[in-house]
Amino acid sequence: MRTWKGICAYIVRTWRGLETYQKAGVFILLLLITIGSLAPWIAPYDPLQTGTPFQSPSFTHPFGTDNLGQDNLSRLIYGIMNTIKIAFVAALVSLAIGVSVGVYSGYYRGWREDALMGVTDLFLLIPSLPLMILMASYLEPSEWNIVLVIGFLWWCPTARVVHARALQVRNQGYVRSALALGYGGPYIIWHHILPNCKQVIIAKFTMGVALAMLAEASLSFLGLGDPLSITWGSMVNLAYSCGGFANDLWWWYLPPCIMITLTAAAFFMVGGRKNEGRRWQI
């Protein structure tokens, strides 16, 4: 009971501290996730049910049908969770690696810092999109490949930012005080360094999700995603390869493009840096 109360109070406090555009981002995302998770009930058709192909928008099919006669609106709705899920896990993987590397090297410094930051710099130099294409085409097409590729390539910017922040935090008086009290590295990292890096971590994470979505869309568009999973990227790919673009069937390819943009923008909005007004101490 008490913990629930605490959690609710925390949520309310966090919500109040958000900027208007962050609230808007959260609202859009919650709306999308609600629709996505209720897909079987909301979507008018089964996304795999075939019918008359290449239909124009009508009351029965608001966004028309694709080359197999599958309802575009239903596919769009089913695609929400798939797209967000892949992007989320990919961002989580890159975040986990990036934060660990950044905090560890920032706190312990010395040769460990030199080594880890050297590796980070090396990874930063890798041109990521070509490599992604290479890896995705070499591995078997599957949605988890994208997670793997994005996760293992995109941790470096996070590592850099977190490292810089950790360097700042470790020189603060409270870290020294904790050291003087006899606390060791793991305690200090967990209780002081990580919480004080929270802002940059959250910002990096939400941006990571947005970027991963875009990357997933690009890879799927290139036909390197899982052909069986319904994502917005694969919808655009389908529209492209089956003449949707050539015949200007905008109701087919435009909605998924807009959804990708909207969702990525929503994540960017949530992660946008909070504009902290100068606090006046009197």
């Binding site: 603060q172 008086g173 409270y174 020294r176 005080s177 050291l179 003087a180 009290l181 006899g182 209780h191 002081h192 919480p195 004080n196």
Partner: peptide
């Protein structure tokens, strides 16, 4: 370290915000 404590000049950074 526990037997020798230290207090710094800047009180603001001495506490985790």
């Amino acid at each position: 370290r526990r037997s020798v404590q230290i207090v710094f000049q800047d009180p603001i950074s001495a506490f985790d915000p």
